[in-house]
Design a protein around this nucleic acid. Sequence first.
DNA 1: TATCTAATTAGATAATCAGCTAATTAGAGT
DNA 2: ACTCTAATTAGCTGATTATCTAATTAGATA
Lengths: 107, 107
Amino acid sequence: MKINHVLKALSHPIRRAIIAYLRNGSMTAGALAEKFDVSKPTMSTHFAALKEAGLITAERDGVTIHYRLNATVAEEAIGMLMGLFGTQHMPSVQEQPPAPEETENEI
Amino acid sequence: MKINHVLKALSHPIRRAIIAYLRNGSMTAGALAEKFDVSKPTMSTHFAALKEAGLITAERDGVTIHYRLNATVAEEAIGMLMGLFGTQHMPSVQEQPPAPEETENEI
DNA sequence: TATCTAATTAGATAATCAGCTAATTAGAGT
DNA sequence: ACTCTAATTAGCTGATTATCTAATTAGATA
């Protein structure tokens, strides 16, 4: 898993939304494509970026292709980011954390 | 915190290395800059990207500027990614996880 | 084999990004 | 007021990214 590929893959809203869809189970390329307002070839390149990062896997069934989330890579990525930040405890993922107050000495 | 800014900020190796340095305490722009083999103006734009994402804060002390990691935003970002992936349990961050075996039906 | 469907690849273009040098700002100290 | 230092902004160039339409591939089926 190359963290650079993973983070680049994640830094596009459509690709994050694809992942969000795939949390609920695998979907075909076409079914995913029609959820977004871009062309199918554009969606194909988004799939390719996620696949390159290892975040999704593809499985052909006849003429259609099913994409599925790769939870292993997702967890590895989170582990690496936690290592990067030195995160000590779990942030809440269910509720929205309170907005941080403005700091004084920002430039 | 805009997750898009955070992920774009993280998707460059120099910017991740800056964060790694700042884990050990704040550093001046100049001290950080001389750790990397790019020009100071280029480093400045990397600082700006991290600042824009909220991952670091800047504090001026006379003529020098001290950058510091913003742990709050780092944890929020990890929380959002865990929400995105639907991560259930903690991956190990200390030891290297085993390489995932190749899947059969990749295309 | 001809054709239909699902999806990708090819090729082009506009926008964004990363890097550089040169110029500018901001503060401190003569 | 000058000058020195630390850092950023301005302006440019080359590389990468996101998007599109058109063309191609791959499998299924009449």
